[in-house]
């Protein structure tokens, strides 16, 4: 029947529309992802199995199997030092960032004018490029003309005129400070969102039950934020493990190797010492480390039970 034919044709077109067209539509995105993610991943793995010193030759060197990995895990004090630095940095920056972020969130979660404006202002550090943050703090911490240095000097007389970036401990402290300043606003926003979705009646019930502000925070609010907190901790661990930009622009790993994080070590190995094969292998080790946390992270965000 003539009436049915166009309908059929339309139906066929519709099926094509549904089943095939959607792949065509996401194909460009997939290509971009493959080019920027998959290709470097695979080629990186390939390089890590070779010796490739750019200082000797631009061509890929001999295949060494797991040789680079063996050296990395068994016989490289510099890498070990970087691992230690990264561990210290990660632990302290996670704790400090999240504490500061939570403090700010509690202070600024209201909807008053002051809170809203302060919130907007505080997002600026997060909007800045991390490299720029490092450069800014380098100036702020300059013992001769740095504003922050002067402030610290006034507050803690013992640190007056101290050269932050010349002392191993102070340099690490400066690096953490700069990281907290940069990343706390992001987690503050995350916590403000979580605080806003907290059932208000639980807070009110606790107030009527006689809880002080401190108790209210630690016994009623914080436990209910646990799922969000867990996600924040994991995210921040992942961010901290791969810290690089600020290290380059603030301390450049120094003094000595006291702030040389893993990412910085890898960067130096590849682009200063031109040992690309070994850099690729250590990069893979760091990635494996982060993959563990990333896996837990995804587990958490996809498996969140409704409370």
């Amino acid at each position: 029947m003539p009436g049915i034919l166009p309908a059929r044709r339309f139906e066929g077109w519709g099926r094509m529309h549904d089943r095939v067209l959607k792949y065509w539509l996401i194909a460009p995105a997939l290509l971009v992802i493959a080019g920027t993610l998959l290709y470097p991943l695979v080629s990186g793995l390939w390089y890590s199995l070779h010796e490739w010193k750019l200082s000797d030759s631009p061509a890929l060197g001999p295949f060494v199997g797991l040789g680079n990995y063996v050296v990395a895990v068994s016989d490289d004090p510099d890498l070990l030092n970087s691992g230690r630095v990264t561990l210290i940095f990660t632990v302290l920056s996670v704790v400090c960032t999240l504490s500061v972020a939570m403090g700010l969130a509690v202070l600024l979660s209201g909807n008053g004018r002051l809170e809203v404006n302060a919130r907007t202002l505080l997002v600026i550090p997060f909007a800045m490029s991390p490299a720029l943050v490092g450069v800014s703090w380098r100036f702020l911490l300059n013992p001769e003309f740095g504003g922050f240095s002067a402030l610290i000097g006034a507050l803690v007389p013992g640190l007056k005129g101290a050269s932050f970036l010349a002392d191993p401990t102070l340099a690490m402290a400066a690096l953490i400070l700069c990281d907290v300043w940069h990343s706390a606003p992001y987690f503050m926003l995350m916590f403000i969102g979580a605080l806003a979705s907290l059932p208000q009646e639980t807070v009110e019930a606790a107030q009527v039950d006689g809880a002080s502000r401190i108790r209210l925070f630690f016994e009623i609010v914080l436990p209910q934020l646990k799922p969000v907190l867990a996600i924040a901790v994991l995210l921040k661990i992942i961010f901290s493990l791969k810290v690089l930009d600020q290290v380059i622009t603030l301390t450049n790993g120094g003094p000595g190797t006291s702030t040389e994080t893993l990412a910085h070590f890898i960067y130096q190995t590849a682009f200063r010492w031109y040992d690309v094969g070994y850099a690729a292998a250590t990069a893979y080790l760091l990635a494996a480390c982060m993959a563990v946390f990333a896996a837990i992270y995804f587990q958490l965000i996809t498996e969140r039970r409704p409370a």
Binding site: E201, E204, A205, V208, D209, A211, S212
Partner: peptide, 30 residues
């Protein structure tokens, strides 16, 4: 907290992370 009243909320306001016993005992705990 300084008014010394006890309230049953229309929408309960139970503490979701605490057991029934902990919920009931909370005014005593504080």
């Amino acid at each position: 907290k300084d008014r010394d009243v006890a309230m049953v909320f229309q929408n309960y306001g139970l503490y979701p992370h605490m057991s029934v016993a902990q919920n009931i005992g909370y005014p005593l705990k504080v």
